[in-house]
Structure formats: C-alpha cells, structure tokens
Design a protein around this nucleic acid. Structure first.
Lengths: 209, 209
DNA sequence: GCCTCTTTCATACGTTCGATTGAATCATAC
DNA sequence: GTATGATTCAATCGAACGTATGAAAGAGGC
C-alpha cells in the first residue's frame, strides 16, 4: 500500500478533525501534523483553510448526492407512482451507507454533515454546491406528486425534518451517548429505524388549521 | 425602563451572539462591546467565557425544561393512557413557544439549541445539566408505556429524532433559506406541522427485522 | 550535468484571542 | 466624611491562529 500523496493525506486528516472538533475548533497546524505534512502544505495545495474544508465536504457529499439522485431515478423509472417509503429509502438510505460499510466512517460522515448544516461561520455557506440543491428539488417534486394534500411550505418543512433526523441521528452515538444509552447501534438497524420513522412522518395527513 | 445591570446585559448580548455565530465564533470582546461593558466584565461576573455560555444556556433551557415537565405531569394527571399526539405536543410544544411569543426570539432559541447539540467543543459537555436528562427520561418512560411494541433502542432513536426535528427546524429559516423557500413561517404553523409530523413518526409500528 | 517545474521545508508576520492585573470609581453604612 | 466592599476601567500578557515568504529538495527531460 503506497502512502497516498500529501494532498490526500491532508483531506483525510482534515475530514477526521473537522468532523471531531468542527471547523473553528480545528487548526491548520493540527491538520498538517496529523497528515505528517508541513504547515504550509494547506496553503500550497488548497489555498486556504476554508477551501480545504470545501474540498473535504465535496469529497464526502458528492457520492451521497449521486446515490440519492440515482435512487430517485431508479424509483421513478420503475413506476410513476412510487410509495412514500420508497422515496424515503432512496433519500435517506445513502446517508447511512458509509456507516453500514463498516468502521466509524459513517459516524464521522454524519458528524461532518451536522457541522456543515449547523456551523454559523461565514464560509459555511459555500461548502455545499448547487448539486445538492437540485437533488433536493427532485425529491421535493416527487414527494409533492405522491402527497398531493400538502402545501408546499409544509412539504418543505417535512423535507427539512427528514434531513434533520438522518443527520443528527448518529450524533450522540459517536460522541458520548446520553447516560443510560446502550451501545452504539449498528448502521443497518439505524437505517431501518430511520426509514420506518420517516416514512410514517412523511405520510401523515396535512396538519389541521 | 431602567437599564438592566451589567450581568444581565452580558447574558443578553451573549445569547444573541452565541446563537448567531456559535461559541467559538463569538469573542469575549464582541460580547462586551455589544453589552456596553468592559472587556473584563465577563471575567468578573462569570469567571470565564465557558461559564458565561453555561449561564446563557441555563437561562434559555430551564423554562423550556420546566414547561416540558409540567406538560407531562398535566397529561399524566388527566389519564394514565395518553395519546401519542398529546405526549408529542407536551414535549415539542415548549420548544416553539418562544417563537410564537413574537419577535425573533424563537429562532434565536432554536439556533442556540442547535449550537449546544452540535458544538464539538470540549466545554459543550457541561452546558446542559441533569435536569434536562430527567425530563427526557420521564418522556421516555411515558412513550414506552404508550408504545409497548418498541425496543428501548428504537424508542431512544425516535426520541432523538423528535429532538432533531424540533431543534433543526428553524435553522434554515433564520439564516438564509434554501433557494426557492418561501418567507419564514409563523411559529404557530410550524408548531402544528411539527406535532403532526412527529406524532405520525412516533406512532409508526416497529421497524421490521 | 543542467535546466525547469513541482513540492516541501523552516521561519516569520500580523492579528486576534481569553485571561489577568491593579488602579479608579461607585454605592452604602456608620 | 470616611471607611468598606462591590464594580468598572484601561492596559497588558502570553499563546494560538491563518497566511505568506524564500530557500531547499525532488522529479523528469534532454
């Protein structure tokens, strides 16, 4: 196994540290030290710390987005009237795959996504690209067809809830669990739980009022 | 209206800034400047930046926790077999009340809670006290009685999902919304949407497998 | 060997941070 | 008035931060 080049080692180290300590909580020095590289390497390969973060996020998000897009295409190719559960599975499933694949990569991914979503830093706005938005718009349209009774606003609220559940889910598993919490659950079980939970939520009739 | 004392002004300013820029993204200097106080005031009144944050969180969380506890007591005093919707309403409702009360206090509260939940900083572990845990344990027990088919692990997963939806919900509303998103929704509508969404999710049969 | 382009290196710069200090100011009681 | 305790103030500390620089080292073609 040839040692990967400096650029890749920086991405790996940064992904670890950003996920664990957040963007502001991670120093460029910590990243380069972990990567076994020189302090100036970040500047040389990425330009700045913010651009390194953007590269890390892109590397993590893009396969997930692609899987979501492919899943939606597959479902819609089979039938023009899919079930809510199928759509939920296609949307939420890819967010669990890294974890199911073994190791703690999934928890790290989850943590990183939460960091992206919740980091109030200015730079965070440019971390995700337009690709993710179009995927979400695609699911939005599909759900809108399947759930005709919902107002666009309420549907958007539910989409956001879906994202929240899948992203935040593993948060307390990876860091220390709430007292009394059992051992970290396997990714496969969490995936089933999430799909069940979210399919029921998405299928609910519109709120009264 | 007499100007509040320095200590209170520091808490107000810190609540604003922590919610808007996160813990690490807020400097003590920014807080004291906004509060119209001297830089050393934080050290004098709270000891350190971390203890100031803990005080801010306590001031925000405690009324919510108390309302959740009271709501649970009220429900359980009326009947020993409440509906899932009643429990969801009692749990999630107080998280929306600040916003319904008017102004942007609710969004700020929501944002602050997300900061607490997702901030990877070391200090974050001590921001919430044992009071919040006992409230959650109370709801956990109540839901366990009403949803007997669920394993403790899956129930805990659902509780976490409930927290995620209520906390993350207003995130994108307060900061800039996803493109195409309509105007920020009123707190009252969001509350109904959340309760509907979550009641259906909590009521779902156990996941297969 | 030598030139060229890429990458790594040690080092430094300017800034910002949280915390601390000791003097100055204020309020209150005697 | 003056002593006392609480609070505010300007000023400064050392440490950590992101970034920039110019020299050194390496790789590949000729």
């Amino acid at each position: 196994m040839a040692t990967p080049d400096t650029r890749t080692q920086l991405l790996d180290a940064a992904e670890h540290l950003f996920a664990e300590h957040g963007y502001r909580g991670t120093s460029v020095r910590a990243i380069t030290t972990r990567a076994g590289a020189n302090l100036a390497a970040v500047g040389y390969h990425f330009g700045s710390k913010a651009e390194l973060m953007a590269a890390v996020v892109r590397r993590v998000i893009e396969p997930i987005s692609a899987a979501q897009r492919a899943g939606l295409d597959t479902v819609l190719a089979r039938t023009s009237d899919p079930s809510v559960g199928e759509l939920v599975e296609a949307f939420a499933g890819p967010l669990f795959d890294r974890m199911s694949a073994g190791g703690e990569g999934g928890a790290r991914t989850s943590r990183l996504i939460v960091t992206i979503l919740s980091d109030p830093a200015e730079e965070a706005r440019s971390w995700t690209g337009p690709g993710e938005d179009t995927v979400r718009e695609g699911y939005l349209a599909a759900f809108a067809r399947v759930l005709p009774g919902l107002s666009p606003e309420e549907l958007r609220f539910r989409m956001r809830g879906m994202l929240a559940v899948t992203a935040v889910d593993r948060l307390e598993v990876h860091q220390q669990p709430t007292p009394g919490c059992t051992s970290p659950v396997a990714g496969e079980a969490a995936r089933r739980w999430a799909v069940t939970f979210l399919a029921a939520a998405m299928s609910a009739p519109p709120a009264p009022g």
